[in-house]
Write a protein that binds this DNA or RNA. Structure first.
Lengths: 134, 134
DNA sequence: GCCATATTGTTGCAAGTGCAACATTATGTG
DNA sequence: CACATAATGTTGCACTTGCAACAATATGGC
């Protein structure tokens, strides 16, 4: 229980710091980064919304709305899936790639300050290994 | 960065599980537990809202509203602070104590399944020690 | 092929959260 | 004491999220 409470608190604190820095830099929230990164990795093939859902732990309806916002911001586009009349395929736009790149140094800097600066490489490796099993 | 992403994901996943179980049991969300526990610890003396804020990482306005809800649910009471005309002192009610006690086994059970079952005692100690430094 | 069931995605509504502005009281500095 | 500044808490508004219901298509069993 102690471990869990610390996991909870440290994540909340660091998450807030990261979000705060992104906002201060006039950038969108962290979850946009995750989705943009996955979209970028999937290239021209794009991603089904359900795949975004699986990767980000978002609910279906939140993926739906987040993609709405990404589309609205010109960072991604939706097109009907060729092989599945229900779903849509989402692909990143050049502006989306640019946005992810703009977010990266801010994100990376915050994590460097809040995580990398507080534990050495060996410790981070141990932490990483333990968290993977959760 | 790997460590951070795993910290983020594992916390999100476990947090969702805990919240889901509480909801399924007809109980309020996890943050209520945190606040009720702190109030219970503070006994009849109660707590200032700013102290709740510090302990839970909530924003001031969210503390204000959460206390509204606790009061509305009959789990806590607010009275003006004797030595500070601005603030209020929050105390837990018997129903609040009962609610915290009702939440505990559900909370504990979820953490047992999601955390304790996946790492042994020595590993939990190491994890705990590392997270404390974040 | 037909029909029950599952999967994928969307949306109206209620509830929670962030932001900025505000009211009120404390604190400190001259 | 007077006044600028800080601290505490609240609230209107916009935005986000959860829930439940829904529409549309896919899948599997007969």
């Amino acid at each position: 229980m102690t471990a869990w409470v610390r996991l909870l608190r440290s994540q909340q604190r660091i998450f807030k710091t990261v979000e705060g820095r992104l906002k201060q830099a006039g950038l969108p929230p962290l979850v946009w980064y995750d989705v943009l990164l996955e979209l970028e990795r999937s290239g021209d093939a794009g991603l089904r919304q359900r795949d975004i859902q699986r990767h980000t732990l978002l609910e279906r309806y939140n993926v739906s709305r987040l993609v709405d916002r990404l589309e609205g911001a010109g960072l991604a586009t939706r097109r009907p899936a060729a092989d599945d009349g229900r779903g849509a395929v989402v692909t990143i736009s050049p502006a989306g790639v640019a946005m992810r790149q703009a977010m990266w140094p801010v994100y990376e800097g915050a994590v460097a300050d809040e995580v990398s600066a507080k534990l050495n490489d060996a410790e981070l490796k141990i932490l990483s290994g333990l968290l993977e099993r959760l």
